[in-house]
Design a protein around this nucleic acid. Structure first.
Length: 810
RNA sequence: GCGAGAGUGGCGGAACCCGGCAGACGCGCCGGACUUAGGAUCCGGUGCCCGAAAGGGCGUGGGGGUUCGAAUCCCCCCUCUCGCACCA
C-alpha cells in the first residue's frame, strides 16, 4: 500500500537535509560550469513573509533551480534590506528598539524562507544594518563625494510632517508621503544629494543593453528621466538689461510670444518686483506657496499670476512683452522662466485668457500649421488644438532646426536638452539608517571621515522619537568629534542615508560578502556580475532600479566595476491581491502565506502561485485555490509509486508524449511561462495515470515528470526521486531531462480534412504522411469524397504533421 | 492628454510570436461509483442554441480588410488596466 502524500511529513526533512548537504552554496572560482547569478529583490523585514514574498521567491527559486539543473554554477543569495523608517516607526509604537525589532523579523523571515524551501546560499547572508555592511555603504558615499557626485545644498525639500523627515521626489505620490499618506509640505533645508542628473543621458542610452527588460519598465524609466530637446533662448529685461534664459522645445514659435513668466522662486524675481513696485504681492505669493507641498496639484493647476511691472525683450523681433510671476511655472524644470506663447501652448493660452493677453499664432513657412489661412485654431507642439480663434497670425522664418541655428549664430540662444530627472536627495532626519560619514569643522568645513575610521557607527542609545531634528544631533557622544584634518572641535553630520542607498549595491556585496578590506572583491564581482536574472516586484520599476543603475554607472566610472548595467534580465512579477484590491490589514483582506504552508505544504503554495497566472500579471487570491494543485501532487505521488513498482520500457505513445512535454516545458521555463508549464505537467500526469491504469509501465515518463516539476515543487520531487525512484543524489543537482527531437515531433497522426477552411472529417494516418499520400487520400478515399460532396478539388494543402486542406471549386 | 498593455466559457487562464480541430490545465458546477456519512477519494460530463440521439447552427469587445482558411495578420472604433502628466 502506497503511503499517502503528506507534505508536512516530508518537507521539513528535506529542509534539514539540504542544509546538511550544503546543496545550494555557489561554486568557487574553479567551478567549471557556466555561472548564473539568480538575484531576487531582497526583502524588507517588516514582519513575517507576506504573499508578495511567497510569489517572488517562488518564481526566483524556480529560475535558480532550473539553472542548477541545466548545469550552471548558480549564485542565489539572500540578505535583508534592514534599515529604514518602518522599523523606526514600529519601534516607537511598540516601545522597543529598531534594531531589536528588525533582527527579530529577520529571524522570523529566515525560518519561513527555509520552510518554504527556497534554495538560498545561506553562507552569504547579510543585513544592510550590520556595521560590516554599512561601513562599505559609507565608503562608497565617500568615493562619490570625492568625485563630486555627492554634495550638499540648501534646497526646498519635500517634508513629511508626520514622519518628520525629508522625502525624495520619488517618495511623494500625489502630494502626499508615499508611506503614511500625509500631505507633504515644502521646507528649505541643507540636504545631501547624489548627482544622478549627471547620468541622465547614460541612463537613457544604456537602455539599449537591457534586452531582457520589459517595455513597460523601460517606458516608465524613460518618462521619469523625461528628456526633451529644444533650445535655450535669452531674453533681456528692458528695465534692467538683465539677461534671462528660458528653455523651450519650440524656438520656432518665438514670433508668437506675447508675455513672459517667472517661477515664484526664480532668483531674479525679488529685485524685479522691487523695480516694478510689487514686492509685497510677490512676497505674499511666495509665503503662501511655502506652506503648500512642493508637488501639489491645485497650486500648479491655477492660472493665477502677478504682473511684475517690467518687460522682457523678445530677441527675434525686439518686442517688449509684460513679465509675470506665476506658480504654473516650476523652478524645478528648465530654467524657472518661460516665454508665453498662447497660440501654441494650452497653459499659456489659459493664462493669456485669464489676464487679458493677446494670442498670436505662428504660421510655419511650409504650411505645417493647419490653420495657416484662417487662423481660427491654435495648436500646441504635439499638434493638439489649444483653442479656437480668431487669432492674429505672424509668419515664422523657419522650422525648429533653422531657428535654433540662427539663434546660436546671433548669440541669442543655443540648442539645449532638458531633463525632468532631479538629483537624488539622500539625507534623512531619522535614526535608523547609515550615518553620513562627514564631519563639519568650523575651520576646515566639510571633512570626509577617513576610510580607516569607518564605519561611523550608529549608536544604540539614541532618543529617536521624531522631532524634526535628526535624532543623532541629540547624542553628544556621537556629534562631538575631533576634526580628522585639524583635530580641532567639530561636529558629525547627523543625517542618515536613504535606504535606497543601501539597496543600490547589495547585489555586489553578495559576490564576496565577508570581504573585510573593501566593499567587494573585484575578481568575484567580475565573475558573477552582471546578474543574469533579477526577479522582483513592479513597484520598484523606477526607484530602486534607477538608483541601482546609477550606482553601477558611477562605480564603473570610478574604475571599481567593469560593467555599466547591473541586471541583464529583469522579471517584474505582479501583485497578489484579494478580491480585486491590494491586501491590507485595514481592509481585512489580508492573507498570510505561512499558515497556508502549514495547511497545504510549501510545494502546493508555490505551485499554486505559479499556476494562477503569468508572472507579470496580478493574482487575485480569491480566484485561485490550492486544492487543484494539491490534488495534482497527490496524483504525481501515487503515479510515481505505481510506476516504480513496475518493470519494462514505456510504451511508444507515452514516450512520445513525454518527449513532447519535455520540449515544451523547457521552452516554457525559459520564457517564465510557469503557469502553462504546470498545465503541461498536469497533462502528462493524466497520460501517465491512464497508461498505468492500462497496466503499462511508465517509469521513464514519471522520472521526467518529477525532474521537470522539481524547480517548482522541490520537496515532493526530491522525495520521489531519492526515496521512490531510487535516484542517486539530489534531484536538484541532476541534469535537466533531454528530449529526443524526432520523438517529440511525432504526433498521434490525424489528418484534419478541411474543405474551404471548414473541418469536415478527421482521418487517422501514419505520422510521416507525405504530400503524395495525402493527395491520394484526399482524392480517392471514400471519406474524403463524402466530405467534399460533388465539388471539384482545386488544391490540396498538406501541413505536416496533421493537416490536409482541400480547396474546392464550384 | 501622452505612453504601455489587455479584452476568449460561470471563474483563473491556454492557443497569438510563426494564420490551420478555439476553450489546454485547473477551479466551479452536474451526474455516477465507493460509503453509515462526505466538506474524503475515484470515474464521467460541462462554450452557447436546437435536438432523445445522430447531427446541425452560432461563437474569441464592435466594424471593415487580406486569405481556401483569422482569436491570431492589417485598418478603424469601443471598453478596461497600468504608468506619466502644467515638464515649457
Amino acid at each position: 500500500m502506497t503511503r499517502p502524500y503528506d507534505p508536512q511529513q516530508i518537507e521539513p526533512r528535506w529542509v534539514e537535509a539540504w542544509e546538511r548537504e550544503r546543496l545550494y552554496e555557489a561554486g568557487g572560482p574553479d567551478d567549471p560550469r557556466p555561472k548564473f547569478y539568480a538575484l531576487d529583490m531582497f526583502p524588507y523585514p517588516s514582519g513575517d513573509l507576506h504573499m508578495g514574498h511567497a510569489e517572488v521567491f517562488a518564481f526566483g527559486d524556480a529560475i535558480a533551480r532550473f539553472a542548477w539543473m541545466r548545469g550552471h554554477n548558480v549564485l542565489h543569495p539572500i540578505g535583508w534590506d534592514a534599515f529604514g523608517l518602518p522599523a523606526e516607526n514600529a519601534a516607537i509604537k511598540r516601545g522597543t528598539h529598531p534594531k531589536e525589532w528588525t533582527y527579530r523579523n529577520i529571524d522570523l523571515q529566515r525560518a519561513s524562507f527555509k520552510r518554504y524551501g527556497v534554495s538560498f546560499d545561506w553562507s552569504r547572508q547579510f543585513n544592510t544594518c550590520d556595521p560590516e555592511y554599512y561601513r562599505w555603504t559609507q565608503w562608497l558615499f565617500l568615493r562619490l563625494y570625492e568625485r563630486g557626485l555627492a554634495y550638499r545644498k540648501l534646497a526646498p525639500a519635500n517634508w513629511c510632517p508626520k514622519d518628520q523627515t525629508v522625502l525624495a521626489n520619488e517618495q511623494v505620490v500625489a502630494g502626499a508621503c508615499e508611506r503614511c499618506g500625509t500631505p507633504v509640505v515644502r521646507k528649505d533645508l541643507t540636504q545631501w544629494f547624489f548627482r544622478i542628473t549627471e547620468y541622465a543621458q547614460a541612463l537613457l542610452d544604456d537602455m539599449e543593453e537591457l534586452e531582457g527588460w520589459s517595455e513597460r519598465v523601460l517606458t516608465m524609466q524613460r518618462n521619469w528621466i523625461g528628456r526633451s530637446e529644444g533650445a535655450e533662448v535669452e531674453f533681456e529685461i528692458a528695465e534692467t538689461g538683465e539677461r534671462i534664459t528660458v528653455f523651450t522645445t519650440r524656438p520656432d514659435t518665438l514670433w508668437g510670444v506675447t508675455f513672459f513668466v517667472f517661477a515664484p522662486e526664480h532668483p531674479s524675481v525679488p529685485a524685479l518686483a522691487d523695480i516694478g513696485g510689487v514686492p509685497a504681492e510677490v512676497r505674499d505669493l511666495l509665503d503662501r506657496l511655502q506652506a503648500t507641498p512642493l508637488t501639489s496639484r491645485e497650486q500648479a493647476q491655477s492660472r493665477e499670476g502677478i504682473p511684475l511691472g517690467v518687460h522682457a525683450i523678445n530677441p527675434v523681433n525686439g518686442e517688449k512683452v509684460p513679465c509675470f510671476v506665476a506658480p504654473y511655472v516650476l523652478m524645478e524644470y528648465g530654467t524657472g522662466a518661460v516665454m508665453g506663447v498662447p497660440g501654441h501652448d494650452q497653459r499659456d493660452f489659459e493664462f493669456a485668457r485669464q489676464h487679458g493677453l493677446p494670442v498670436r499664432v505662428v504660421i510655419q513657412p511650409d504650411g505645417e500649421e493647419r490653420d495657416a489661412e484662417t487662423m481660427t485654431e491654435a495648436y500646441d507642439h504635439e499638434g493638439v488644438m489649444v483653442a479656437s480663434g480668431p487669432f492674429d497670425g505672424t509668419p515664422s522664418p523657419g522650422g525648429i532646426p533653422r531657428v535654433t541655428e540662427w539663434l546660436a549664430s546671433e548669440g541669442k540662444g543655443r540648442p539645449a536638452v532638458s531633463y525632468r530627472l532631479r538629483d537624488w536627495l539622500i539625507s534623512r532626519q531619522r535614526y535608523w539608517g547609515a550615518p553620513i560619514p562627514i564631519v563639519h569643522c568650523e575651520r576646515c568645513g566639510e571633512v570626509p571621515v577617513p576610510d580607516d575610521r569607518l564605519p561611523v557607527e550608529l549608536p544604540d542609545d539614541v532618543d529617536f522619537s521624531p522631532t524634526g531634528e535628526s535624532p543623532l544631533a541629540k547624542h553628544d557622544g556621537f556629534v562631538n568629534v575631533a576634526c580628522p584634518r585639524c583635530s580641532g572641535p567639530a561636529r558629525r553630520d547627523t543625517d542618515t542615508m536613504d535606504t535606497f542607498v543601501d539597496s543600490s549595491w547589495y547585489f555586489l556585496r553578495y559576490c564576496s560578502p565577508r570581504k573585510e578590506d573593501g566593499p567587494f572583491e573585484t575578481a568575484e564581482v567580475a565573475r558573477w556580475m552582471p546578474a543574469d536574472q533579477y526577479t522582483g516586484g513592479i513597484e520598484h520599476a523606477i526607484l530602486h532600479l534607477m538608483y541601482a543603475r546609477f550606482f553601477t554607472k558611477a562605480l564603473h566610472d570610478l574604475g571599481l566595476v567593469p560593467f555599466r548595467e547591473p541586471f541583464t534580465n529583469l522579471l517584474n512579477q505582479g501583485m497578489v491581491i484579494m478580491r480585486g484590491a491590494k491586501m491590507s490589514k485595514s481592509k481585512g483582506n489580508l492573507v498570510e502565506p505561512m499558515p497556508l504552508v502549514d495547511r497545504w505544504g510549501a510545494d502546493t503554495i508555490r505551485a499554486t502561485m505559479m499556476f494562477a497566472n503569468k508572472p507579470e500579471d496580478d493574482i487575485d487570491w480569491a480566484t485561485v485555490s490550492p486544492e487543484g494543485v494539491h490534488d495534482w501532487l497527490g496524483r504525481v505521488w501515487r503515479a510515481a509509486h505505481d510506476a516504480a513498482a513496475r518493470d519494462g520500457a514505456d510504451p511508444e505513445a507515452l514516450r512520445r508524449t513525454t518527449h513532447r512535454t519535455i520540449e515544451q516545458v523547457t521552452a516554457l521555463y525559459e520564457g517564465f511561462r510557469f503557469n502553462v508549464a504546470v498545465a503541461r505537467l498536469m497533462e502528462l500526469t493524466n497520460e501517465i495515470r491512464a497508461a498505468l491504469d492500462r497496466g503499462e509501465p511508465a517509469r521513464e515518463a514519471v522520472t521526467a515528470l518529477v525532474l521537470m516539476a522539481a524547480p517548482m515543487t522541490p520537496f515532493v520531487a526530491e522525495e520521489l526521486w531519492r526515496e521512490v525512484l531510487g535516484g542517486d543524489g539530489s534531484v536538484h543537482r541532476l541534469g535537466w531531462p533531454a528530449f529526443d527531437e524526432e520523438l517529440a515531433r511525432q504526433e498521434a497522426a490525424t489528418l484534419v480534412v478541411q474543405v474551404d477552411g471548414k473541418v469536415r472529417d478527421t482521418i487517422e494516418v501514419s505520422p510521416d504522411v507525405t504530400q503524395e499520400e495525402a493527395e491520394r487520400l484526399a482524392r480517392d478515399s471514400e471519406r474524403a469524397r463524402r466530405a467534399i460532396g460533388d465539388r471539384e478539388v482545386a488544391r490540396v494543402i498538406v501541413r505536416p504533421p496533421r493537416l490536409v486542406n482541400l480547396v474546392t471549386r464550384g
